[in-house]
Simulated scan of single mutants.
Amino acid sequence: MIHEVDDTLRALLRAEVLEGAQIAVVFDAPTRDWAAKVNAPTVNLYLYDIREDMRRRERGLYNEYDERGTVVARRRPPRFFKLSYLITAWTKRPEDEHRLLSSLLSCLLRYEALPPERLTGILGDIGVAVPMTIALPPPEDRSFADVWSALGGELKPSLDLVVSVPVTESPTYPAGPPVGDEGLHARFGDHAPEERGRTGTRRSMPVYGGKADTEPGPEAGSETGTARPGLSLRITETRGDG
């Protein structure tokens, strides 16, 4: 996913900002040693932070269907991860760097997500929007001065680009066979199912919420052995060989 975002950003900037100009687009860490070797106009998109976007996390499971519309598996929804890029311009004059940063800012402000027509690979296949923000204030637990200190370089004007990329890799849980009505039968009758006790009495199994009636059966000397009328529901299941 990360390399696909890199490719999309490079293509976007070259097409809408650089427009064929001899300016390189790189993703190197802008350390002091790297800066000393830059000898041509360059736009650097340094990926300095990767963390999950908790505001976009979803619960539950997604269903996967076959060609007949039957659920065959379930999986977790995609999780979004924020890729934070430090964008800097490198030329011989600060005025040219400022002009280049202005063009980059104007281009990225036109989009709230990466253009769908420029997405490739898995990002293009899943059909999910890839949101992005540009030049927002950094979170409280991070400052750009700390980033430059960690790189060992001097503080330089920069743009902070954050891309929320969906990651679809997650466990897949196979679904059981669909429930059909060929093996399930419901029968209604005037009496609840009956059992015979050890003493020969015939007992009516109670319907949920009702009372069982016990009357002497023929084995106990009763001539009729009829049970008190009631309503019951008997559910049986039949299983085939396959």
Rank of each mutant, 00 (worst) to 15 (best):
I2D: 14
E4I: 00
E4V: 00
V5Y: 13
T8A: 13
R10G: 03
R10D: 07
E16S: 11
E19S: 10
E19H: 14
A29M: 04
D33H: 07
W34M: 10
K37Y: 02
K37W: 04
N39M: 03
A40D: 05
L45Q: 10
Y46S: 06
D49Q: 14
I50G: 11
M54P: 08
R55S: 14
R59M: 07
G60M: 02
Y62G: 03
N63K: 11
Y65V: 03
D66F: 05
D66K: 01
E67R: 12
G69L: 03
T70M: 12
A73P: 09
A73V: 02
R76H: 02
P77G: 02
P77K: 01
R79E: 11
R79P: 04
R79N: 09
F81R: 12
F81M: 09
F81L: 09
K82E: 14
K82M: 08
S84N: 09
Y85I: 00
I87K: 11
I87F: 12
T88N: 07
T88S: 13
R93D: 14
P94C: 05
E97V: 00
E97A: 07
L100Y: 07
L105G: 06
L108T: 01
E112C: 04
L114Q: 07
L114H: 09
P116T: 03
R118E: 06
G121E: 03
I122Y: 13
I122D: 15
L123P: 07
L123C: 04
G124K: 06
G124D: 07
G124Y: 06
D125V: 03
V130G: 05
V130R: 05
P131L: 00
M132N: 03
P137I: 00
D141V: 00
D141A: 09
R142Q: 13
R142A: 10
D146R: 10
W148G: 01
S149L: 09
A150P: 08
L151G: 06
G153S: 15
P157A: 00
S158L: 08
L159Y: 08
D160M: 03
V162R: 13
V165S: 12
P166S: 04
T168F: 10
S170P: 07
P171I: 00
P174S: 04
P174F: 03
G176A: 11
G176S: 11
P177S: 08
V179M: 12
E182L: 04
E182V: 04
F188K: 05
G189C: 03
G189N: 06
D190I: 01
D190L: 11
A192T: 11
P193T: 01
T201C: 13
T201L: 12
R203G: 05
S204C: 09
K211C: 06
D213G: 10
D213K: 10
P216L: 08
P216R: 11
G217L: 02
T224G: 13
T224C: 08
A227Y: 07
R239F: 13
R239L: 12
G240C: 03
G242Q: 14
